[in-house]
Design a protein around this nucleic acid. Structure first.
Lengths: 190, 190, 190, 190
DNA sequence: CTGTAACCGAGACGGTACGTCAGGTCTTTAG
DNA sequence: CTAAAGACCTGACGTACCGTCTCGGTTACAG
């Protein structure tokens, strides 16, 4: 019988160890200084084991995002029925993350990763929008929510909210109490 | 007379040549692959002349932004008196930039630069807002413009607009006709 | 079985290529201008491959001397039974080397190397004395050779002979026919 | 009046300061690590002042040797009438110099300098032979000294003595009591 | 059971770029 | 007009990682 395969199969332990190490090092050193050799060393793994399965450090980070190794669900959009409250809660948690230096650093590292890896760019957007997208939630809520303009262009609103957060991180604008609320009011209307 | 200094003075020709080379290479190769040695080579300058005056490649790019070597005024907010039309024009030009691959690449490179250099982050924000800030213009227009909600939180609106543009570049969302208008309507209200 | 070693092994081809390149460049450029980067370039080898195995350029040259890459046996003391004739032959060949400009240059380069690397100093001395030391040969010959003062202090004689050669090279005294003979007569007695 | 010279003349203070600094630094750091910039700094002089008057660091050292800035007469051959005693005294002082680490270092530095600068080579030889050459003294003594083989080839003997000293320094052979005597006996005969 | 093929860790290899240092030339300024 | 100060270009330094490759050792399926 041809096409038979033999030999051991990909080591799940190595894979998880690599993702873990990559996530830690990204937060510690930023994207530019993140080195494959360091990942390999911290993960206790040969360099070739990384190159065998991922084409670039960006790809490793994309997989981290996909698995939630990095932001593990902490930033998902909740769903209590009150979309406005949910968004307020969600934005509040993101701004809280930005207040801590390591949180801001992590977000900036992710932005850098997104800037040179398309997959990370897409994943980062999805990841920040929670498991269910912000715009999707807005659309679903449109008919029922009493405190939301019914004809709002949901995609654009989501884009603006997330974008504003990214700009915050990039420009190092210090976060002040109430900023999240003001942003939300500005975009959703009062 | 004490405290007298002597010796030659900083070469303006070298300085401009370096900024020019840095801006070109950033557009061509992106931020991560941008190498000081290449800048020096293209500028026809010794490496040490760069290290003497700038602490990092980020600092060079920040100075480029400040001088307008990079986006040289192409993205300034115009001022015709009609703030809504001005914003539409401004956003339209930014989206037009994003449609060309090298334009999108340049913006992503700048984002990467901003992500690891605070000064670039601040300058990028100012640079995108034009010589006069978007929020400033919004505030000034508030009393007079008939087509603008008078009590709008201008800072937040500017943040959202610019942020949305950045997110576009990061997530590689393709630009389609009318996108700029829809974004503007979504945020300023109809 | 524990304690097993794995991984690739040192490349013998790279090692020999580096020694060869170092020997050539030393003769061409002298010791001070001998650059590790040039050795790496000429040997077709990465710089790190040199730094991995040798701590300094002196160490490379010491290994050249040890392997005979540099003077490859051309200057060994022969052994015909007649120690005086052997020494005359040996000194003659050294003086012949000094007559050619590249030979003198090579010897001066070696002296410079010896001056800042102890190992090269020792190896140079051994190397010039041939595989079997001059003083050893003198001692063995003492009982049997009819044309040699029996009680001669062999170590010192060897030292003086080799030293005189070095001084020749350093002071650029031009070599003239009969010089080798005169030196030998002066030191061994007539 | 034609051919009149104007302006200040070469500063003797600067010249001596440079030679002094060069001599000190050579002893401290060796020849390879001896840097023109350091000489300029220690001498309190601009680099250009050195380059204006000397073509290379070797030339500076040659001038030091000529002026006696380096070994200032300490190693001159004395003249008591007893040539053998004089040589013994002279060799003894050289070996004493070799026993101290900084003395050995200085000699090795001078050898390195001689190896890449012809002028230093010649000067070093003369310098070590004292203000009056060893071979000259040997020749003059030939008729009168009772304890010296009258027909000795003086040039070669001087060459051998000095050469042996150089080889000592290069090969780091430790100096032991009586070495100077043994060398002298070996070469002059008993 | 036993081969054997693919995995694993380790790490050497030819390279590129780093940031530093010194060399030697040139220009500006003070005296 | 000299000489200091020091900016300039050049080029080597020694280090960190790149991505590829080669080792032995170690599974886990195929026969």
């Amino acid at each position: 019988m041809a096409f038979a395969r033999s030999g051991p199969v990909r080591s799940e332990a190595a894979r998880r160890s690599i993702l873990q190490a990559a996530a830690e090092l990204l937060a510690e050193r930023g994207y530019e200084s993140l080195a494959i050799e360091q990942i390999a060393a911290r993960a206790g793994v040969g360099k070739q084991t990384i190159y065998r399965w991922w084409p670039s450090k960006g790809a490793i980070l994309a997989e981290c995002l996909l698995e939630g190794t990095m932001l593990d669900g902490r930033l998902d959009l909740p769903d209590t029925g009150d979309i406005r409250a949910d968004l307020r809660d969600w934005l509040g948690r993101i701004f809280a993350l930005l207040e801590r230096p390591e949180g801001e650093g992590l977000l900036r590292a992710l932005i850098a990763a997104a800037a040179d890896n398309a997959e990370v760019g897409r994943r980062l957007r999805d990841s920040l929008s929670g498991s269910e997208s912000v715009s999707g939630r807005l659309a679903r809520a449109a008919g029922t929510a009493p405190n939301l303009t019914p004809v709002a262009p949901f995609e654009e609103i989501a884009e603006a909210l997330i974008g504003a957060v990214l700009l915050r991180a990039l420009s190092r604008t210090p976060v002040e109490p109430g900023d999240a609320d003001r942003l939300l009011d500005a975009i959703l209307g009062r």
